[in-house]
């Protein structure tokens, strides 16, 4: 096992390409160290990216924000402008673990760990975020929903890693929200998560919507049918009920130690309805 802390992206990519065996990126380490301790993972190379310039920065870009891969949950939460523009994303990231975990865990780590229950992922999908992948030959930007292929598996090729996430500029009258269900009030992995992002016209009619569910399938789902039900409507009870039904139907969860199929399906609907209402209130301002 080798620990490296390169100071440029080029050096980092070089290390990854040359590495034999398993390589793992260290940003916050809150997933990596747990996996190593359990014996699930014994990487040959651990590459700490925190010494690469930009990795710990939040930078305004095209009216939105670029969030470096090593920005911790606490740092993101303390950034007033990001919180104001995309409260749904920030609240999702802040739900990951305890205060201690927040001091280290990163949004990009949450994305690349590729857990179906990752809190920040449905929130990022809902706001249309993109991830920047750096690698040997090219740098590419992809929608965040394409990063995870299956639990623990990503599209990243050898030599590649995600260097940042880009949150686009929010249109006027846009609101985002993320809710999750856990058995306790803190410290649990989401049993169901729901991210909603809405844009309204001046009359309060939904003109743009994205709905994403977490922990109810092998990876976070973008539920287009749920968005469709909102488009062209105000959020009256009838629309909300239909939204909840569609979200429940879209969920294809499993029974496991954290929840049952029936529970997850029902709560997917409940949370999506509640998140939509919060997003709606936020969009109205």
């Amino acid at each position: 096992m080798r620990y490296e802390a390169p100071e440029t992206i080029k050096a980092a990519v070089g290390l990854l390409i040359k590495a034999r065996g398993q390589s793992r990126i260290l940003a916050g380490g809150t997933d990596l160290m747990v996996q190593m301790r359990s014996g699930m993972l014994e990487p040959d190379l651990i590459m700490d990216i925190k010494r690469i310039p930009g990795m710990r920065d939040i930078v305004p870009e095209k009216g939105g924000f670029r969030i470096g891969a090593a920005v911790s949950g606490s740092e993101l939460g303390e950034h007033a402008k990001v919180s104001k523009m995309w409260p749904g994303v920030v609240e999702a990231v802040e739900l990951i673990g305890s205060t201690q975990i927040q001091g280290r865990a990163t949004m990009v780590g949450n994305l690349c760990n590729a857990s179906p229950a990752a809190d920040s992922v449905p929130a990022l999908i809902a706001v249309g975020a993109t991830a920047r992948i750096v690698g040997n030959k090219r740098t590419r930007d992809v929608p965040v929903e394409t990063i995870a292929k299956a639990p623990g598996k990503t599209i990243l090729a050898k030599g590649e890693f995600v260097s940042s996430v880009f949150l686009p500029k929010a249109l006027p009258r846009t609101g985002s929200a993320y809710l999750r269900f856990i058995p306790r009030t803190e410290m649990d992995i989401a049993v169901v998560g729901s991210g909603v992002c809405l844009t309204l016209n001046p009359k309060g009619v939904v003109t743009k919507a994205r709905v994403s569910l977490g922990a109810v399938a092998a990876r976070a789902l973008l539920v287009e049918e749920a968005a469709d039900v909102l488009l062209g409507n105000k959020l009256n009870d009838d629309v909300l009920e239909r939204l909840a039904d569609i979200a429940s139907d879209a969920a294809t969860p499993i029974n496991d130690k954290r929840g049952t199929v029936a529970f997850r399906k029902q709560v997917a609907g409940v949370l999506t309805r509640r998140a939509a209402l919060i997003a709606f209130q936020r969009a109205k301002g």
């Binding site: 306790r184 009030t185 803190e186 410290m187 649990d188 130690k257 954290r258």
Partner: peptide, 16 residues
């Protein structure tokens, strides 16, 4: 045993 840890063996936390 499927939940041999404080993550999934859920004892009350302060905010509970």
């Amino acid at each position: 045993l499927q939940n041999a840890g404080f993550l999934d063996y859920r004892i009350p936390v302060c905010s509970d």
